[in-house]
């Protein structure tokens, strides 16, 4: 039932949610922002519901401004929803976010690293914040570096290229060996070769026991990597299922076409940001 071999982590999972096989459960989630004028209401999320099972790789696709980052923000405790309930690792985010923190790793859309520290020091620092010992941290860094090469790991992040910063951004999210991983556009702005290596790395995580929630603009890659995808637009869920199911349902030869049919837009249009 629980596709989680990591006993240490499994101990911390809870069953407050209705379905114990789900690592993520989102019910009628709404997030409204208010503009300068009182009647300006931005519906960043307008009532979305979905579930993600343990060990699943789940892709959130949608044009720019669809609400992907907002969804990840709510799931990782950074955004308080206007309405709706959210369970992560079985915990109610409203009541038990502190417990959830031990389970999750978050790779934010913007690179958030200390520029005056080296790559290694950045990872070490976040390892410490995750209450890991020095040995645990060093061991994990060695394993991660074997999977995702970052030659400049011992140089100051200040001098990193965009692609190197994104790699570091991702590595930090993995230091605590999270069983639920949030990746918000992990490869955006990388050159194709670096992107390839990150996607390969994500493939290698797939066989492990991690649940991965991923937002991306690269539909083709999402199609091959994700067990299931959800397409959101204007804060609403317009489709959810395995890539195969969606292609069959919408009589399309690939996910890109499904996306185009459902949103009327090419995802690339939304790539300015």
């Amino acid at each position: 039932m629980l596709k989680n071999n990591n006993k240490f982590k499994a101990k911390y999972l809870s069953h407050q949610s209705s379905d114990p096989t789900c690592s993520i459960e989102v019910n009628d989630l709404k997030k409204y922002y208010y503009g300068k004028k009182y009647y300006e209401k931005i519906k960043a999320l307008d009532g979305i519901s979905f579930q993600v099972k343990y060990g699943e790789v789940f892709g959130l696709l949608g044009p720019n401004g669809a609400g992907k980052t907002t969804t990840v923000g709510v799931l990782s405790g950074l955004i308080t929803p206007t309405e709706g309930s959210v369970f992560v690792g079985g915990y109610d985010m409203k009541k038990n976010f502190d417990k959830v923190k031990a389970l999750i790793g978050v790779c934010p859309q913007e690179t958030r690293v200390f520029k005056f520290l080296t790559g290694r020091e950045n990872i070490e620092y976040f390892g410490k914040l995750h209450l890991m010992t020095k040995d645990q941290i060093n061991e994990k860094i060695e394993t991660l570096l074997k999977l995702v090469g970052l030659e400049a790991i011992d140089r100051k992040a200040k001098g990193y290229s965009g692609g190197m910063l994104r790699k570091l951004n991702l590595l930090i999210a993995l230091i605590n060996n999270p069983c639920i991983l949030f990746l918000d556009e992990p490869t955006v702005g990388m050159d194709p070769r670096a992107r390839r290596s990150i996607w390969n790395f994500l493939f290698s995580l797939k066989s492990s026991d991690k649940t991965i929630i991923l937002t991306t603009h690269y539909i083709e890659e999402a199609e091959s990597l994700c067990d299931r995808v959800a397409i959101i637009d204007y804060g609403q869920l317009v489709a959810i299922g395995t890539p195969k199911e969606l292609m069959k349902e919408h009589e399309s030869k690939n996910l890109e076409e499904v996306f185009l049919k459902l949103t009327g837009r090419r995802i690339i249009e939304g790539m300015e940001n």
Partner: peptide
Amino acid sequence: SEGLLKRIYTTPTSSKE
């Protein structure tokens, strides 16, 4: 402003540290 407090907030250690 660099969003690092947010990143710290998602770890078990609070920004008080």
